[in-house]
Nucleic acid binder design. Structure first.
Lengths: 328, 328
DNA sequence: ATACTGTATGCAAACGTTTGCATTAAAGCG
DNA sequence: CGCTTTAATGCAAACGTTTGCATACAGTAT
């Protein structure tokens, strides 16, 4: 049995109300310095810890925020978790993590215990479940390239990122540029694909060398090799993410193709991994720090004032040039 | 204002107790099929969601487990989070994540809201805070190579892993084997170091080529280059983890040294990243799946029965041979 | 002296569940 | 028909906080 506020009250000789005001901090200024001291000492002495469930019951909030991650595979995801957790912690929140890739409906169970939800790349899942969430009035902020824009959101402009990538490849002298895409992504709005289409068309080139595959490295490697055999060698590849770029590089290497001189490669996301390949890969870096910072900030404001108007931000990724596009 | 159990009770024409028994599932068998149906329908109709704080207050448990991660940098960490979250979810728990690398005392705030704690690689931090946790009787399971063995734990035998690595290097013909170690780790018990010492000594070799550095790739790369300049080229390097192995490989490559023929490399952990380097790296893979599965299992048992005797497991890592040790 | 300010505290009613015990009704049994 | 068992439900007291309102007391101005 844990120590309660009443026991402290008895021990000090004051009412539970007084103890609560001191220990919760919510009414500490009403209490005299003297009793405040005595209460703190007693609390320490008896090793008191507040019952957070009881507190939540009456205050109506929990101090917990849920983070919905589309996946948890790469260092990219780890970084998102780390950044969000850090910011939330700083604001006094604990972070509850749910991986929504398994798409189970049971995730619902825990919704009631959070003050708000941060979603990373959850468009597909969110579309299904957003209505009921909205009905319950749960603060929600959507983040990432596939942020749901019906809510507060921090979106990363990967359309713009893609244009950076393709233009960069064009400047490097590429003319037959392929787009290596995650097959699942074809059905949701695909900003990278749009960027590829537009910039290629604008340059008078055909945006039709599409390689669709699973998003693992192994599959990407295989897909690239197959594509080369069937449709011939491209002179540049723009990849849906860095994982797939690593796969592409790997596949080309198995074919004895030289990167960047035969084929230049650009990835997406900006994970550290690609910097340490023999040919470090050029990439489109997502501004994760700012995304997470803003996401937490938006959520916090929404929790404090539920009726403010929609908050949103559009962040621009940056081109990071490395060896994989620097041709002779 | 949310729907409560009382409103459902009124709506159906039964007592709150009955509604509770049906909806919580804890006394459903006592209630007639007919009323059960009516209660469920009303709950659905009114869009009822239980107030979890109230429930926790009376039941005394929350359905939340905390996961303490030493760090959240690499895909290795992402995988641990993913596996733990998945297993916990399957057992009906939500996962609260805390990154303890920042070492702030404020982490204490949230302890009261969890049914138990899973710690990954937390020896250093845990030693400081374990006593008070123990006093409060919070179920805790420690996992990883640096698991605290004073509690329930799932330890990964990296001493044994290191012996595998060093023996493998010896068999590959290496004689001057260096150990690249995370400088921070020198002060806690370091099983990898022990393995290096013992196997080297047993082979009549001097275990004294130690390169201590920061654990980032960049620092490792630099440290290796410096070490080579100062102490000459080793013919094998055993690395504290895969990140550092990547750095080491990178450093050697900058020096124009050939891997594996001039220097063979073995890493630790078994992350996917090292498989896609130009020279895929041999590594000591940690059995993360089993570690996480057992960790959750132990914790669950401890929560169910606090007084069972200490549970522990010692898991063996496996040698994964790749190109970085296959010499001509 | 009275009235009026604060300041410091206590009282007691919430918050929404769960659950031990009591109660009722129905059914089984001799 | 009375007596015992069993099944289905209700009553009311917890669980540990917070907080609006009331109170008590001091000090100060009238």
């Amino acid at each position: 049995m844990s120590i309660t506020i009443k026991q402290i009250a008895k021990h000090v000789g004051v009412s539970p109300a007084t103890v609560s005001r001191v220990l919760s901090g919510r009414g500490a200024h009403l209490i005299s310095e003297a009793t405040r001291q005595r209460v703190w000492r007693a609390a320490e002495e008896l090793d008191y810890h507040p019952n957070l469930a009881a507190r939540s019951l009456v205050t109506g909030h929990t101090g917990i925020v849920a983070l919905w991650m589309s996946e948890l595979f790469t260092s990219f995801h780890a970084r998102v978790v780390q950044l969000v957790e850090e910011h939330l912690h700083q604001q006094g929140y604990d972070t509850l993590i749910w991986c929504i890739s398994r798409l189970s409906g049971t995730a619902w169970h825990g919704v009631g215990r959070v003050d708000g939800i941060l979603v990373h790349e959850g468009a597909v899942y969110l579309q299904k479940v957003w209505k009921p969430l909205q009905r319950r009035g749960i603060p929600l902020v959507s983040m990432g390239a596939y942020a749901l824009t019906d809510t507060d959101h921090v979106r990363i402009d990967l359309y713009q990122g893609a244009t950076l990538a393709i233009r960069h490849l064009l400047e490097a002298g590429c003319r037959r540029i392929a787009y290596l895409v995650n097959a699942e992504s074809r059905y949701v709005g695909e900003p990278r694909r749009d960027g590829y289409d537009r910039v290629m068309s604008a340059a008078g080139l055909l945006p039709e060398y599409i390689i669709a595959t699973d998003q693992s490295r192994a599959e990407s490697s295989l897909a690239v090799r197959r594509a080369v055999q069937e449709h011939g060698l491209p002179d540049g590849i723009f990849c849906h993410n860095d994982e797939m770029a690593i796969g592409a590089y790997h596949g080309l290497r198995l074919l004895g193709v030289h990167v960047p001189d035969d084929v230049a490669i650009v990835g997406c996301d900006g994970i550290e991994d690609t910097e340490y390949l023999d040919v470090p890969l050029t990439t489109i870096r997502q501004p994760l720090e700012e995304m997470c910072r803003l996401g937490v900030e938006f959520l916090q404001k929404r929790i404090a004032e539920p009726h403010i108007e929609r908050q949103s931000a559009l962040l621009r990724p940056a081109l990071v040039v490395r060896a994989s596009t620097q041709r002779r």
